[in-house]
Design a protein around this nucleic acid. Structure first.
Lengths: 332, 332
DNA sequence: CTGAAAGCGCTAACAT
DNA sequence: ATGTTAGCGCTTTCAG
């Protein structure tokens, strides 16, 4: 067995309260006794038991992170942002994959709360009343990262997806494209089905271009689905001369499908993507993309959570990070 | 405050011991009392406090995962394998990025042990005596994933890197390449500097080809470093006609550099990669690669850890998973 | 089948 | 500046 605070106290000839004080850096300890205790600690190889500490103090310095899929490039960059800031503030993270499945999500929240995490960063698709209920019932703060709560009740960190898509589509139209295709992500998640789609429609409208049902489709973020959607576009009567794709992986699929059909990007068809992961550099032509600050979304979300856990004042519960559009070789 | 086991006991008119039994599925409870307790639990919205349970039982059902960088495609796939199996066995994981920095690694181990994790999956570069010391001092099991301990003292899950590289290089030689380049990962990690390099040299030797210093170089796994290393190769007197690259991202860099120089893959230069992540499908030509079962390494490592935590018998402490070579369009 | 009671290792008043 | 003393919420003998 490893040494306990009691062993250290005995070894150093002081009470456990004093040991606790030096372990926790409490200044009310005479330097000489501090030294005595420190030596006893070293001699015994004492390491504080965080579980006991958590039970007594009701703080675990651990936060829960619920993420759809850590093996996705996009989410793993987000996760890295979260973890870096967590580390900076001395928190550890319990990482859970939800696969965007609501039952799993609810179950994970329960498990994490049972483990007494001090807060939770949640990434998911659709937030519905059942989620909100869980968030509110719990007595620890939640922050949504890259996930929107349409009611703006829950703290969240995002970019303005609608605006970003509006800009991209407008640019494409203004540079002469009358038929702009849109390969969206699953539309049951509001970011896609609502905000991004709205941005797309708004851009068309403001340029007096009629909305064409067949130019909008849905993929599942895989390379293959991007390829298939593009294949469908190319076989239609109304073919797009530019395609906006909701993920880098799908966008690479789109480019390859276009090239496989003997067409050129961007000469024949322009392609714009939406995540700006490292992948954009790894395809020829390199991908123009909405530059979503993925890492930063995670980092800012975690930072916001630390404030909430600390009962610090926060200016705004809903933070919207700026985005850019990084132009590369897949557009003219 | 949320309800405690004591509240439930009172509500149900039983002792806390009985509540504990029903919560833990102990069969020694009369069905009627079980029912009474279950109802009280539901009524009060009772949720067991895992921290208290952990303190009393000395088990946290949480394992630590130390990983170089979760945002890397390779490691995030490994992590997903770990997490899936952990979930299957009712464990949660505390995920920590080490950046392959030894001081951080040691510090993380300390932190995780302080949090009383039941076991640790460790991924890193070089395992040296200081690590081994930590592993042995602790009283919880460790498993190395995709990380070799040259002494075979610590349980680990890997593929046979030396053999895999031997096969790849042999194939390349046998199909007519006299000059095979090798862009390795950082050689201070034994998997690269020792095993993979040995495999490379052994293949040359068995085909009576002299080792050529300038055909072996080192990258840092980034796209850019793959491109640079290749550029260097192409400017040399002795140019490779085939290149084996230690990561998909670097391999894509290599392909692009070759193409940017007006050469063709595989006609002028063949390229083989080594991770077989999803990236291999996302480049043209698609990448021939050593198929390392990344997800499985994580999954098997976690499974091994569960056995160790459970004091189950394990056939072998050192598991070597099979690998394949998946041929695609970047080789003839 | 159920209850009583003693901790698990630590923090946090409250004393001194 | 240091010690005493309750718990924190649960598991786990040990009785009965």
């Amino acid at each position: 067995m490893s040494a306990t605070i009691y062993d250290v106290a005995r070894e150093a000839g002081v009470s456990m309260a004093t040991v606790s004080r030096v372990v926790n850096g409490n200044p009310n300890v005479k330097p000489t006794t501090r030294k005595k205790v420190s030596e006893a600690i070293k001699r015994l190889g004492y390491r504080p038991n965080a579980v006991a500490r958590g039970l007594a103090s009701k703080k675990t310095t651990t936060v829960g992170v619920i993420i759809p899929d850590i093996s996705s490039v996009y989410f793993s960059e987000l996760a890295r942002g979260i973890e870096d800031i967590a580390t900076m503030y001395k928190y550890n993270i319990i990482l859970c994959n939800s696969d965007q499945n609501k039952d799993k999500e609810i179950h994970l929240i329960q498990t994490l709360l049972g483990k007494q995490v001090d807060g939770i960063v949640f990434m998911g698709g659709k937030i519905d009343p059942e989620h909100i209920e869980e968030f509110k019932q719990s007595n620890v703060p939640f922050v949504l990262a890259s996930t929107v709560d349409e009611q703006h009740e829950i703290p969240s960190v995002n970019i303005d997806y609608e605006q970003a898509v509006f800009e991209v589509i407008s640019k494409l139209i203004e540079s002469g494209n009358q038929h702009v295709g849109f390969i969206n992500g699953p539309v049951d998640v509001p970011i896609n089905g609502k905000y991004k789609l709205n941005g797309y429609k708004a851009a068309l409208k403001s340029h007096h271009i009629p909305f064409e049902e067949t130019l909008v489709t849905e993929g599942d973020y895989t390379y293959e689905s991007g390829k298939e959607a593009t294949s469908q576009f190319l076989s239609q009567e109304i073919k797009p001369t530019a395609i906006f794709v909701d993920s880098d992986e799908m966008a690479i699929g789109a480019i390859h499908e276009i090239q496989d059909e003997g067409l050129k990007v961007p000469e024949d068809i322009e392609v714009v993507s939406s995540e700006n992961t490292r992948l954009v550099q790894m395809v020829r032509p390199t991908l123009t993309s909405i530059a979503e600050p993925t890492y930063d979304i995670g980092a800012v979300a975690m930072r916001l959570l630390t404030k909430l856990m600390n009962n610090e004042k926060v200016e705004s519960i809903t933070v919207v990070l700026p985005h850019r559009i990084d132009e590369r070789k897949s557009t003219k």
